[in-house]
């Protein structure tokens, strides 16, 4: 029977990769999201490595005795996953660059529907607060909407 007890360090590393990856994915900049995705995928690759059981010798008949072999299937799956992530990293980098070319930044833009809702919120906000600044209309509703959104993101009340 193969010993499948994983090394504790690897398990902790997988957890750390996932936690920091999720944190980065929740950012608004595409490059940070990309870093998060890379971290998570490294975590998944390590998880695949753990799933293959304990470490061993090269799984080549005649080089390593049968009982000392590492599981080649897990490593094959990791290799495939690495290649796929590599290609997608290049693709996202290209997208981030294109976004930077056009907009000067690579922030993931709001969904159209979100923007519409934010605009409604911006229109209603002064009434809700009873503020008297609402007749100052030299800023467009769109700007107000984005300002309201940034305020929410920064933890201030709009």
């Amino acid at each position: 029977m193969i010993d499948t007890t994983p090394s504790l360090m690897l398990v902790i590393a997988v957890g750390a990769f996932f936690i920091s990856g999720v944190y980065l994915v929740l950012e608004r900049t595409l490059t940070r999201v990309l870093l998060g995705v890379i971290l998570i995928s490294n975590g998944v690759n390590l998880l695949l490595l753990i799933s293959g059981g304990r470490a061993g010798g090269a799984p080549i008949v005649g080089v390593t005795p049968d009982e000392d072999m590492a599981d080649p299937l897990a490593q094959f799956m990791i290799l495939t996953a690495i290649v796929i992530t590599f290609g997608l990293t290049a693709f996202i980098l290209a997208m981030a660059y294109r976004s930077w070319q056009m907009l000067g930044h690579d922030e993931v833009q709001d969904d159209l529907e979100d923007r519409r809702i934010a605009r409604l919120a911006a229109r209603n906000a002064p009434t809700v607060e009873g503020s008297d600044t609402s007749d100052v209309t030299d800023i467009s509703v769109d700007d107000e909407a984005s300002a309201a959104r940034d305020d929410i993101a920064d933890g201030r009340t709009p």
């Binding site: 995705v37 998570i40 995928s41 897990a74 996202i92 997208m95």
Partner: peptide, 20 residues
């Protein structure tokens, strides 16, 4: 792309766990 990537990573995690 980001949503697609994350769904793939979840799927791959499931594959790894199932294999384990």
């Amino acid at each position: 792309v980001v949503v697609g990537l994350l769904s793939s990573l979840i799927f791959l995690t499931a594959v790894a766990m199932i294999y384990a």
